[in-house]
Design a protein around this nucleic acid. Structure first.
Lengths: 217, 217
DNA sequence: CGTGCTTTTGACGCGTATCAAGCAACGTGG
DNA sequence: CCACGTTGCTTGATACGCGTCAAAAGCACG
């Protein structure tokens, strides 16, 4: 959700408002199903979006890292969105729906950037769906961490040997449609295979090429 | 992908070009991975998009019905798209990338409509991902047909008792991440449960409420 | 009136869920 | 400074949903 909008008119809007929200880890940013009158420009920390089915099954539909925009599609339409919670302490800047719509009306260039961000989001979602539909558990875990890594800037603790990742296995499980137990087994297998290792807040890459090969299956 | 753009500036562009493509059933509209310099406004017939994994596994990422736009996100960015094939005979109108970009530059309103269409597509994809990640096979089949039905206009053979659906079980399987055999079993179970019945080119709704309940899990 | 799709059904095996424990790390209050 | 709750990780045993293989029947179309 971010690349097309970093250092863009939307970021400028965020800078203008001046109001900054700081939140603890494990706190709720948006409730499930509610109408959204603003989005959040995520400056620091991690968050994730999720839906809950009637019987308690949960799906984590997105994970947000610093620089991401939370809820762009939801603020653009009136459809009910998923819930959003923080994983770590978070610093975020709200941008209001009317300001975004106004910006798009005034500036064709800004509107085009918004469209680009949304188009990229759609393509990311489509690839993620392919992983959910046709990858094995082992491949899904590899894909999640490989795709995540591609989105994290080097400045946020991402170098050749690994990256920061404060995502518990329970959240990975709900993102991948797996049980926690099986996520753990898959991670252990990736470790035994010399591909990567996940610690509590850190992912260590052992074999970059192998990881990509498995993730792109 | 369609609602925000029907009877919109994009449709006008399509009308302008005048060039209409007619294709047989089971023919290729776009190759996998190629750059797209145009999208297709689908006037008549059905089509579907799919990706193929290295070992032959296939995922059907989208199904297109009359009125849909094929490849809006792909024409807006440079990322390689999935392949697209027809299910039936098709009538489609191409709209060129530069024309769309030009339209968005000239008209903030058109750009806003494009963004809306893309935002709706992202939300649809997110819900589909939830179904893939957390629904049982039985629920996934119900969700696919329930969501499909919501997109088909009454004029295209959709009324209270059923709708036209020229989608073989093999394509349903690849859309849902299931085997053909298990799609068949799930359909038979839905039939035994008095929910719906699928014939070759037609879906018959037996219990609307039950279908929605199962699809929305 | 084949010939190729598509649907259907049965037998069997595998991948992943579930259940059940136990352990490690960490923060908090007595 | 230690007891304890909480959160997250790990592992084994067992169960089940769905895949795979195989085969046949129904249908459409040339």
């Amino acid at each position: 959700m971010t690349s097309a909008l970093s250092a863009s008119p939307l970021a400028d809007l965020a800078a203008y408002t001046g109001s900054v929200r700081r939140l603890d880890a494990r706190s709720l940013l948006f409730e499930e199903g509610n109408h959204r009158d603003h989005l959040l420009f995520l400056d620091r920390g991690w968050a994730y979006a999720y839906r809950t089915l009637s019987d308690g099954r949960r799906h984590v539909s997105d994970v947000y890292v610093p620089g991401d925009i939370i809820g762009l599609a939801e603020v653009w339409t009136d459809a009910p969105g998923p819930a959003v919670s923080t994983l770590t302490e978070v610093v975020a800047v709200p941008v209001w729906r009317e300001d975004i719509k106004g910006l798009a009306k005034r500036s064709p260039d800004a509107a085009a950037r918004l469209a680009t961000a949304l188009a990229e989001a759609a393509q990311t979602l489509s690839l993620r769906a392919t992983s959910l539909a046709r990858h094995s558990a082992y491949e899904r875990v590899a894909y999640l961490l490989w795709a995540l890594r591609a989105r994290i800037r080097p400045s946020d603790g991402n170098d050749r040997s690994g990256f920061t990742c404060p995502m518990p296995q329970s959240v990975m499980a709900d993102a991948l449609g797996l049980s926690v137990v099986h996520v753990n087994r898959s991670l252990k297998q990736l470790e035994r295979d010399g591909v990567m290792r996940k610690h509590i807040h850190q992912v260590e890459i052992l074999d970059d090429g192998a990881l990509e090969r498995i993730a792109r299956a």
